[in-house]
Simulated scan of single mutants.
Amino acid sequence: MNKNTNTTNKIIETKDKKILKYEIHPNQNIIQKNEPFNFKTNANKITIKYNVKNKNTGNYPHVGITAREGLTILYKKNNQWYNIETYARYNEKTIDLTQMINDNKEHEYIIYGPILSNLTNISIEIDNQKEIKNNQPNYEKNILILGGIHSYGIGCTTTGTMFPNILKRKTKHKIDTITFNNRNYLDKINYYLKNNNIKKYDLIIFEIDYYNQDDSIVQENLNEILQQLTLKTQNIICWSTINNTKKQKITNIKKTTKKYKEIKYFNFSELYDSNNKDICTSSNYYINDTGNIMLYKKFSNIIKEI
């Protein structure tokens, strides 16, 4: 979660280099801490050095190696984002962008860290004759993404294709995440909200259920979570995408969410229908990159209406 990741940055100058160095101090491994690193530079050659620890060695065949333990790097030119490269199993990479950028102008960059290991530090080195700075965009709304497996990014080949990260770079909103890599995540969310006083938000996007989550966990926690969230925002988007073999889950969700005027429920189970399942999912449990892109488009339109 962004709030639980204490990230500091500083500029270091040497005779030959300028270095933008980030230090990351995560508090809880289970909560997602995928805060993007956003900076600006007019250099067309950069060296990135980074370290990761606590690599999750579990069986995650649906997650790409860069999302497990590497980096995804993008840059912005003419108001459009472009992929530069993804890296894993390296501690240092030098990127020559001369073929992409040769105008000596300042451009914006984003680096996404891994979701299944902890990024402890990262530094961006450039020639001392160039300029670099941490970038703090101006935000229009404060949004919280709350959820489990899908919101966490399980199923994505890179962290750049996770729908929360697409929203972060393609909208003008500050987006925090509290997401859990756990099948039964609602009790984790309930516990977290009871023990942490989260700030108020303009909008909360809440992944409310998952195909393989125990129904008893939902029944025990959902109402309590919704009651807590209504104290933090007037706009709550609840959503789920569940294989149609478990239609009763969706019926129960609708009954629960109807009790709250602040809540709108969206059923995105179309990702699992016969027209989309082969391109949007990896199995009954995981949505893939294409599924995340579809979710980004849906949420982007919803946010515009609020």
Score class of each variant (00 low, 15 high):
G70P: 03
Y90E: 01
K53R: 02
N38K: 04
T86Q: 09
K77S: 10
K77Y: 05
L71V: 10
N59R: 03
V52T: 15
Y60V: 02
I111G: 03
Y75G: 09
K133T: 11
L146W: 12
N59E: 11
N142L: 12
Y50N: 05
N118A: 07
K141T: 14
R68S: 02
T86F: 10
P114K: 02
E85I: 02
G70E: 00
Y152W: 14
A88E: 08
N138Y: 04
A67S: 09
T72S: 00
Q136A: 10
N128M: 13
L71S: 01
T94W: 08
G148N: 12
P114N: 05
G70L: 07
T47K: 14
I126K: 06
E69N: 01
P114E: 04
H107T: 04
L71H: 08
G70I: 02
I111H: 01
Y82N: 15
Q80E: 10
N78E: 08
K45F: 12
T86Y: 11
N44T: 15
R68F: 00
N78C: 04
G70F: 05
T41L: 02
T57Y: 02
E125I: 14
T120G: 10
N42I: 11
N91V: 06
G113E: 07
E92N: 15
I84H: 07
K130Y: 12
L97G: 04
G147R: 12
I110Y: 05
I111Q: 03
E131L: 15
N54G: 01
M100Q: 05
I95E: 11
I149R: 07
Y50C: 04
N56M: 05
Y109M: 14
N118E: 08
D96L: 08
Y50D: 00
D127R: 08
Y60N: 02
I95M: 06
I84F: 00
H150D: 10
E108W: 09
N78P: 03
T94C: 15
N54I: 06
D96E: 02
Y139L: 05
N83I: 06
K76Y: 07
I65S: 04
D103P: 05
K133R: 14
Q129L: 11
Y90N: 00
Y50W: 13
Y50A: 11
W81S: 10
H150T: 09
I73H: 04
H62I: 14
L144I: 13
P114V: 01
K77D: 09
T120D: 11
N102V: 02
Y82I: 00
Q136W: 11
K55L: 03
N38T: 14
K40R: 13
H150F: 14
S117G: 06
Q80F: 07
A43I: 08
P61C: 01
H107G: 00
L144S: 13
G153A: 04
H107A: 03
Y60M: 07
R89S: 03
N38W: 07
I73L: 07
K77Q: 09
I95C: 10
Y75Q: 07
E69T: 06
A88H: 09
N104G: 13
N42H: 11
K105T: 15
T120R: 05
N142T: 15
Q99W: 14
N78S: 05
T120L: 13
